[in-house]
Design a protein around this nucleic acid. Structure first.
Length: 421
RNA sequence: UUCAUUAGGUGAACCUC
């Protein structure tokens, strides 16, 4: 049983669920009865790939086969609901497991707390934290990490630092993840000084920064245009025994591209290869975007070719960057063709791709075409026009003095917004 | 049997800025 379970787990981790299920039937056929761990591996894997419904069915089957779920099974399901942004379903399962006599553990609570935080419901998360304390379950670093990260995402940096302070005072030393979470938020807010101070503080507490900590700092420096210091920090981490990874390099490649330092970005690309770190689709997409925005479309195409050679498939971001470049160069029809090309390559345009194309059409005064594309995108799953779409169309209509049509458009679409995401 | 299963942090593309 253990052997089969290990094999099934291996297939699951490679997202080869079909083969994992085949193995399950095979072991049954050989009279080898799957046990709780075998099922848990499968339940977890189904949840991770967004198939929580199938996971639920499997649990029903487990019960039927006399193998009732345990706390790990429930935690996997709860995690599935949280990842699917359904924290209320997760809470429902929490109640259910209690009625079945299964004690929730620190993993259960931490998972739900994280799920609530990811939905921006930090207040409820804090209430659940109190609830777990009352239930005699002590929070650990994961629990606090989820809360701190949730507060950071809501830009409640003050409160996040207070939780951090309280942990330090209560003798529960925050770990590298929690420090990094706050350092990241400080960097995003442009507060590099405070971030550096916190970095010193964690070092003072004998917590060594890891690659994620450094990457957050490096990104903060890049976003402020302090590329030289970013490169210095890359050296510094290496010297401290923390090898830069593909993310570290990609951050700086992106920073260089945003500052139009394409040649330096190229040099860094070579350097990372030399360090045994191969560029990935994000690294290449940054480069393609940088080249596209500068109108160097031939070179951008060469990068696409280079990606093919190295077996790195372009994704929707890569293609959208190209579309942007084509639009900017006034090559609108080629940009439109690119929407087809990417679809044929198995990469469906998303909301951003459409918005990019719509903006290009508007800027070229082809507003009617833009509007018909807005209608067309509504048919595509996950591509419902958003606030950005509206801003693009409204601005185009208003700046060409067509305020009547703008009003009409506003009536027929979601309220315009200045929000991102 | 369970060191066979579950939870937190970092990078790229669209409008305005």
């Amino acid at each position: 049983v253990a052997t089969y379970t290990i094999l099934i787990g291996a297939y699951c981790r490679k997202s080869r669920l079909d083969e994992a299920c085949q193995l399950l039937s095979e072991m049954r056929g050989r009279g080898c009865v799957p046990n709780l761990v075998t099922y848990n591996v499968l339940v977890d894997s189904l949840c991770r790939t967004g198939k929580v419904d199938m996971a639920q069915e499997l649990v029903t089957r487990m019960i039927g086969e006399g193998c009732p779920p345990d706390v790990v099974t429930f935690n996997a399901l709860i995690n599935g609901y949280c990842k699917a942004a359904k924290p209320d379903d997760a809470r429902r399962l929490l109640k259910l497991m209690v009625t079945k006599g299964i004690q929730p553990d620190v993993v259960t609570y931490s998972t739900i707390i994280s799920g609530l935080c990811k939905s921006g419901r930090v207040q409820e998360a804090r209430e659940l934290l109190d609830e777990m304390n009352r239930a005699g379950c002590s929070p650990n670093a994961f629990t606090y990490g989820a809360i701190v990260h949730g507060l950071c995402r809501l830009d409640k940096l003050q409160e996040a630092q207070e939780v951090l302070d309280r942990m330090e005072e209560s003798g529960c030393v925050p770990d590298v993840v929690i420090y990094s979470s706050v350092i990241h938020a400080l960097c995003k807010a442009g507060r590099l000084q405070d971030a550096q101070q916190l970095l010193r503080r964690m070092r003072g507490r004998r917590k060594a920064p890891d690659v994620v900590t450094y990457n957050a700092m490096i990104d903060g420096l890049c976003k402020l245009g302090r590329l030289h210091e970013a490169l210095q920090m890359l050296e510094q981490m290496d010297g401290a025994g923390c090898a830069p990874d593909v993310v570290s390099y990609s951050i700086i490649v992106n920073g260089l591209c945003k500052s139009s330092k394409l040649e330096e970005a190229r040099v860094l690309l070579e350097k990372m290869r030399g360090a045994g770190c191969n560029p990935d689709v994000v690294t290449y997409s940054s480069l393609v975007d940088g080249l596209s925005k500068l109108g160097r479309l031939d070179e951008a195409r060469e990068v696409l070719e280079e990606m093919r050679r190295t077996g790195c498939a372009p994704n929707v971001v890569t293609y959208t960057a190209i579309i942007h470049g084509l639009c900017k160069a006034g090559r609108l029809d080629e940009a439109k063709d690119m929407l087809e090309v990417m679809s044929e390559a198995g990469c469906l345009p998303n909301l951003v791709s459409y918005n990019t194309m719509i903006d290009g059409l508007c800027n070229a005064g082809r507003i009617e075409e833009a509007e018909s594309l807005v209608q067309a995108m509504k048919e595509k799953p996950g591509c419902a026009p958003n606030g950005v779409t509206c801003n693009i169309i409204l601005e185009a209509l208003l700046s060409s003095g067509r305020s009547k049509e703008a009003e009409q458009f506003m009536e027929n679409h979601e309220p315009p917004t200045t929000m991102q995401t």
